[in-house]
């Protein structure tokens, strides 16, 4: 439950910043911020007016450049309560800043992976004509990383499963440390003698 809240909170703040960037870029065009407001609202609830009231606080603590009209769109992502979006404001910052910077015209933008106490979160935002049409999570936790570690674990194997080697094919011999005396009868000594 906390994980879910964290993810949706991160998404919410991503939307805050992304739309906030757009509002800043098109600050002279009041129609543009109007469009983004309704678009972001479409991903969750549609209440523009009430949302603007709760989220303007969030916007001011998160990002000074975020316009109040843009912040209004953020709580429309379905989070519902202002407390959860407040708690997430820091975790989503990195993810959305990059996406916002490149989300000028349209297309799909992946945010930076952000470390949160819920794991690594990375969001992808789809923008069409300056409007966010989709927000998806690319990377929710570090489960992928864990699977890499698991695959590097030492597992039992048969001798036929290792590369069979003959001393004629190798250039050096590894083994537990041998004393100077034991070296004389070792494979390494034979190699060294052949190369002298």
């Amino acid at each position: 439950m906390r994980l879910r809240a964290g993810i949706s909170a991160a998404l919410a703040s991503a939307a805050i910043l992304l739309v906030g960037w757009q509002a800043g870029a098109h600050v002279a065009d009041s129609n543009a911020s109007g469009v983004t407001t309704s678009a972001a609202g479409g991903t969750g609830t549609g209440g523009t007016a009430t949302a603007g009231g709760t989220a303007s606080d969030t916007g001011s603590t998160t990002n000074g450049t975020t316009g109040s009209s843009a912040s209004g769109s953020s709580s429309g992502t379905g989070v519902g309560s202002s407390s959860s979006s407040g708690s997430s404001s820091s975790s989503g910052t990195g993810a959305s800043a990059k996406a916002g910077a490149s989300a000028k015209a349209g297309g799909t933008y992946a945010g930076q992976a952000v470390e949160t106490r819920f794991g690594t979160v990375q969001v992808q935002v789809t923008v069409k004509a300056g409007v966010i049409t989709d927000v998806t999570a690319l990377h929710l936790t570090d489960q992928e990383q864990r699977s890499v570690q698991i695959s590097n674990r030492a597992a039992p194997l048969l001798r036929s499963e290792v590369l069979s080697a003959q001393s004629a094919n190798v250039q050096t011999i590894g083994g537990a440390t041998v004393t100077s005396d034991a070296y004389l009868t070792s494979l390494q000594a034979a190699l060294d003698a052949a190369h002298f």
Partner: peptide
């Protein structure tokens, strides 16, 4: 380089 590993 190819390093052999001795059979203990």
């Amino acid at each position: 380089w190819l390093a052999g590993v001795v059979d203990p």
